[in-house]
Design a protein around this nucleic acid. Sequence first.
DNA 1: TTTATTTATCGTAATATTGCAATTAAACGA
DNA 2: TCGTTTAATTGCAATATTACGATAAATAAA
Lengths: 122, 122
Amino acid sequence: MGLSKTDLFTPEQNDLARAAKAFGNPARVAILQSILRVQGCINGDLVRELGLAQATISQHLRALKDIGILQGRIEGVSMCYCIDPERWAEIKERFNRLFDQGEKLPSKNCCQSENPCTQPKN
Amino acid sequence: MGLSKTDLFTPEQNDLARAAKAFGNPARVAILQSILRVQGCINGDLVRELGLAQATISQHLRALKDIGILQGRIEGVSMCYCIDPERWAEIKERFNRLFDQGEKLPSKNCCQSENPCTQPKN
DNA sequence: TTTATTTATCGTAATATTGCAATTAAACGA
DNA sequence: TCGTTTAATTGCAATATTACGATAAATAAA
């Protein structure tokens, strides 16, 4: 296998999962933070900054491009990578919609309490 | 390989990536939404609800337990899975800290504009 | 033109993920 | 006790991910 059954889920669930998967590697998190820090473009500095091989960085950049959160532009001999603000906002929104549902959670985890489960078992 | 080089990154980056990875599968997104919907515990209904095999659901539940976002309690013959509100809030915070840095982004992507990259190339 | 710089791609190895059937283990009910 | 229900675990196959070295392609500099 090794492949998610995307047809069982909504497009929103699949898109959120796809975005989360792209965030699911510390190197890609570091890349995003780096671009956010300079508030602009970024290039080969990443290789020196992150301590990973150039081929590996390039691969991570492509993974971020694949979910639409990064765009690249050729700038002379080097590359300029930027965040797409619209896509960024869209993904942020998707995560927030999920996280906000957690606001209604009881402060005490129901699995820690003595009370039985609120939901019927079948 | 197949293994992230976690030692190159901060604990925060690694934890965020680990949490994102757990969110990075549509079945796990659906499981979380299901628990949030009932605002309590959840059990074998997931198997009927999601259309995945019981072993697969159990595996996904364990992945969510592994990042500390889910807790389980035995309730008779069945299981009661709940979200840990503290860990939920912590993960939400980590994501928010990342997303909020994007607030400062220019509305026009610098890769779409005519201006050259603001950062030096090396 | 030649050389250096920069980044993408290819090939490869090691490991991880996904999903399922089959089995096991535990608790309940008759 | 015996069968039923529920969920975890095991074993397996297919595929994905991660990282790297080597190479290629494109531009800039000499």
